[in-house]
């Protein structure tokens, strides 16, 4: 092999490394995007694990209105509503709001709630210490449940925001991924009459 051909080959290998690297980078954009969202609050994605509430000073001088919206996705027959539609809170205060669900279908359905906050940057300051959206929620036919969401608003919330909206969309995830057994659902209103 001539000098020239060797040089060419070396260069091709280097360039192929870039190509493979960029293909990997395309996929790396997926976790990077989540990091990016966490930093900037694009899209109002909230954290999907619980925050720990440490007693912080409650800022009584500010009152924030929080509005809750519930929706069910196509193919999801559940009844789903917020028991509190709107609540006024002071930053730093811990609050619990309840959501009612009922499965009217004649079979078990496992639900996953996906949160979204608007304006998006509020996601950075909305800390949930407990949320039904952290886990999948199974309900047998005809069952109903009250699902709590406990949260506080970080006092660092920018001054110009006095109002925000939290939306939960319920998706039917039955048969997808790691489904919980029914008895694991801690939010059930009453035990189903007929066991299974």
């Amino acid at each position: 092999m001539s000098e020239q051909a060797k040089d060419n080959q070396k260069m091709v290998i280097k360039l192929l490394v870039i190509v493979v690297g960029m293909f990997g980078f395309g996929f790396a954009l997926v976790p990077l995007y989540d990091v990016f969202c966490d930093i900037t609050g694009i899209n109002g994605k909230t954290a999907n694990s619980a925050a720990v509430y440490t007693a912080i000073e409650v800022d009584e001088s500010r009152t924030i209105s929080v509005e809750f919206i519930t929706r069910t996705n196509t193919g999801m027959p559940w009844e789903f509503r917020a028991e509190t539609k709107r609540i006024k809170v002071h930053p730093g205060e811990l609050h619990t709001v309840n959501f009612y669900v009922r499965n009217p279908a004649n079979k078990q359905i496992i639900a996953q709630a996906i949160p979204s906050v608007s304006p998006g940057q509020v996601a950075l300051y909305l800390n949930k210490t407990e949320c039904f959206c952290f886990n999948q929620q199974p309900l047998l036919a005809g069952e109903e449940a009250t699902m709590p969401m406990q949260f506080y608003v970080d006092p660092q919330l920018p001054e110009d925001i006095s109002f925000f909206t939290v939306q939960y969309t319920l998706f039917d995830v039955t048969g997808k991924g790691d489904s919980l057994a029914v008895k694991d659902n801690p939010y059930l209103r009453e035990q189903p009459k007929s066991g299974t």
């Binding site: 360039l15 190509v19 960029m22 293909f23 395309g26």
Partner: peptide, 10 residues
Amino acid sequence: IAVMPVLAGA
């Protein structure tokens, strides 16, 4: 070579 692999990923 920088962006066609990203398209392939997409």
